[in-house]
Design a protein around this nucleic acid. Structure first.
Length: 156
DNA sequence: GCCAACGTTGGC
DNA sequence: GCCAACGTTGGC
């Protein structure tokens, strides 16, 4: 028995890893998340098959650029053990890994970007629990309700 | 490039 | 356990 499909939004800086990069490689380990809340969403909340809104942050026009799916259960982020990686964490051990990730698989690139600006205009409809447009929210992985997912896709 | 927001670290 | 200092995120 599997629980109902859940939905998420995951941010990536397109200069580092864009939706086009994901389309090219098809599946990517979502490494480098070093925020506990974001980690908890991946480790404790995500299941294979969940829907992901792929969001481009820190770019000229930030917004949702496509969809992906969660393609694995959570497992330890290998980069935390790599002393040469920028994501290296000297306090993490293989016995007790601190950071987890999931694999994310490309699904679809939108015909256009659903911009952050546009989402703000639809704030009333998206609701107060839509974390992306709550002031000051910097989480790079955040939950999206089924209603928000449906509504955001309808904007394309 | 600036800087507000805010999570994390570390001294006490 | 408080909280100032610091570092990072990410919109603008």
């Amino acid at each position: 028995m599997s629980a109902r499909r859940r939905y998420w939004l995951m941010k990536s800086e397109p200069d580092t890893f864009s939706i086009d990069d994901l389309e090219r490689v098809r599946t990517e380990p979502w490494n480098g998340v070093r925020n506990y809340q974001a980690r908890n969403f991946m480790r404790d909340g995500m299941q294979v098959g969940d829907g992901v809104l792929f969001y481009h942050s820190n770019t000229e026009v930030p917004g949702i650029v496509g969809t992906a799916t969660v393609a694995s259960k959570a497992y330890p982020d290998e980069t935390q053990f790599d002393s040469k990686s920028v994501y290296f964490d000297s306090k993490s051990t293989r016995e007790e890994p601190r950071w987890f990730l999931v694999d994310v698989a490309f699904e679809r690139k939108f015909s256009r970007t659903i911009t952050l600006d546009e989402m703000k205009q639809h704030a009333a409809r998206l609701g107060e629990d839509f974390a992306l447009i709550r002031r000051g929210n910097r989480l790079s992985v955040l939950p999206v309700s089924a209603a928000q997912w449906k509504y955001l896709l309808s904007l394309e």
